[in-house]
Write a protein that binds this DNA or RNA. Structure first.
Length: 465
RNA sequence: UCCCCUGUAGCUCAGUCGGUAGAGCAGCGGACUGUUAAUCCGCCUGUCACAGGUUCGAGUCCUGUCGGGGGAGCCA
């Protein structure tokens, strides 16, 4: 008779008691008892907690295999799930067979039965998902991705795939990665000018820094769309909040104004946070206890309270009249510094705040110019700890205003003909925003370094694995 | 890219005033135990990041390179 293979998350549940089953996973630790059995803790990634196995000495391979199990070994274990007589777990599996699939030499296996620093774990990026913290992070990250799709699907947004290779420099700013099939070695030796007509696309191409402009084309046809994919910035940024390759969610909706976009952003974030609390309880308890004390209360309070709203002009007034000392001066027309944003979220509002109506001079050309002529319909959602988590705006739908702004930004209109067509033919008000996935994961988990919330972080000088 | 900090055993770190290295954990051996960060006893472990320099003598002081961290800028 074939024994049911079940996941450890299910085997640990009270209602699994009485089942005869099989589990498959990796040994975390083993403790021997001279009472004639060993305890083996096994994890299969389905939950933070391990399943305790009681392996009796009667097993045929007890002496030569079971007692030699160490952290990292892969095993298939069959037995009976019983109520655990000891504290620490509801259930335990009394093994009738322990099969070792792969050994992990304890002399050379890097992960030990102890806490490792996140810096060290980054060197073992291929093994770190086997740790408690990275496993929990990846389950929460998965939940957030699922919530993103659920939320937009339920609100009538179509998942749209915008290109990763692009010829347009979306925001006229930010270093981009080049995409080429030219032989750079040969090119360097030849010393001649680059002939793009010989390149794959006949022109210079790059990895996308945003799917927004392409997203707008589909929003002005399908109504509501969102993109969700990898995004690339070749900025030489060395911070705990920046990656060269990260994932971004960008909803775009026709007939939305700035207020609609703000409401969407707030509902969206609250939905993600709620789902994490409801579906990742064990992992969230872990973060609350081991990573950032109080992160659960923080998230709960964000869900319960409406987000603070402030215009840029109001924020400047608050910063100018507050008692705090800043390294950078505050004045209308300059961009807010990290220290300013931190003051607003951590001291003034004490929670997430949406800042709106920034000066047009510090925002990109595509944001809609307001009636005052000095500001644009932009919004940034700032959260304590992480800073800007969402940036968005109502888009400029008036052709003449848009082309005027492009001229100010010294952009070549010829490169944006297709984008301008959206305003030439059936233009409509529309709005959207971008959410950095990793920053959302950081906020929910309390992880301080963005490199620890993505499986294989890409940063300047680092593309291992 | 800039500023600051840092690099010593498999891991986390100590190493005083310059006199060629030590602890905990892990591992291994033993004891003990329905254990759960198990506990107790014993044993093993080093290109002190790398390259120069000062000095009778450098883990320690100086210079450079590389790696890591924190902060800033840019942003998501």
């Amino acid at each position: 008779m074939k024994t049911d293979w079940i996941r450890i998350v299910d085997a640990r549940a009270q209602d699994a008691v009485g089942k005869r089953c099989e589990i498959r996973g990796w040994v975390r630790t083993r403790r021997d008892s001279k009472g004639g059995f060993s305890f083996i803790e096994v994890n299969d990634g389905s939950s933070l907690g391990n399943l305790q196995i009681v392996a009796p000495a009667e097993l045929a391979n007890y002496a030569d295999e079971v007692q030699k199990l160490t952290a990292g070994c892969s095993v298939v274990i069959a037995g009976d799930l019983l109520e655990s007589p000891a504290k620490g777990q509801d259930t335990e599996l009394h093994a009738t067979s322990v099969r070792v699939l792969g050994w992990a030499d304890p002399d050379t296996y890097p992960l030990q039965k102890k806490r490792h620093s996140f810096e060290k774990l980054r060197e073992w990026a291929h093994l770190r998902p086997r740790t408690n913290t990275l496993g929990a992070v990846m389950r929460v990250r998965n939940q957030i991705c699922q919530s993103i799709h659920d939320f937009f699907h339920e609100n009538g947004f179509l998942y749209t795939h915008t290109p990763i290779i692009t010829a347009s420099d979306c925001e006229g700013a930010g270093e981009m990665f080049r995409v080429t099939s030219l032989d750079l070695e040969m090119l360097a030796k030849s010393g001649g000018p680059v002939k793009y007509e010989y390149d794959f696309f006949d022109k210079p191409t790059f990895l996308t820094v945003s799917g927004q402009l392409e997203g707008e084309t589909y929003a002005t046809a399908l109504g509501r769309i969102y993109t969700f994919g990898p995004t690339f910035r070749a900025e030489n940024s060395n911070t705990s909040r920046h990656l060269a390759e990260f994932w971004m969610v960008e909803p775009e909706a026709a007939f939305f104004d700035l207020a609609d976009a703000m409401k969407l952003a707030e509902d969206f974030l609250k939905r993600i946070f709620t789902d994490c609390l409801n579906h990742c309880d064990e992992d969230m308890q872990f973060f609350n206890k081991m990573i950032q004390k109080g992160v659960l209360d923080q998230i709960r309070s964000v869900i319960e309270r409406p987000f603070g709203h402030m215009t840029y002009t109001e924020a400047i007034k608050v910063l100018e009249t507050c008692d705090a000392k800043f390294d950078y001066p505050v004045s209308w027309g300059t961009d807010l510094q990290a220290e300013h944003e931190r003051y607003l979220t951590e001291h003034h509002v004490k929670g997430p705040v949406i800042l709106t109506d920034y000066p047009s001079s510090i925002k990109p050309f595509y944001m809609r110019v307001s009636d005052d002529g000095r500001t644009v319909a932009a919004m940034d959602v700032l959260v304590p700890g992480v800073g800007e988590i969402i940036g968005g705006s109502q888009r400029e739908e008036r052709l003449d205003v848009l082309t005027g702004r492009m001229e100010e930004a010294r952009l070549d209109k010829a490169d944006y003909g297709w984008y301008l067509d959206l305003r030439r033919f059936g233009t409509v008000p529309h709005a959207g925003f971008g959410l950095g996935l990793e920053r959302a994961v950081q906020y929910v988990t309390g992880m301080t370094n963005i490199r620890d919330v993505i499986p294989f972080p890409r940063t300047p000088g680092n593309a291992e694995f």
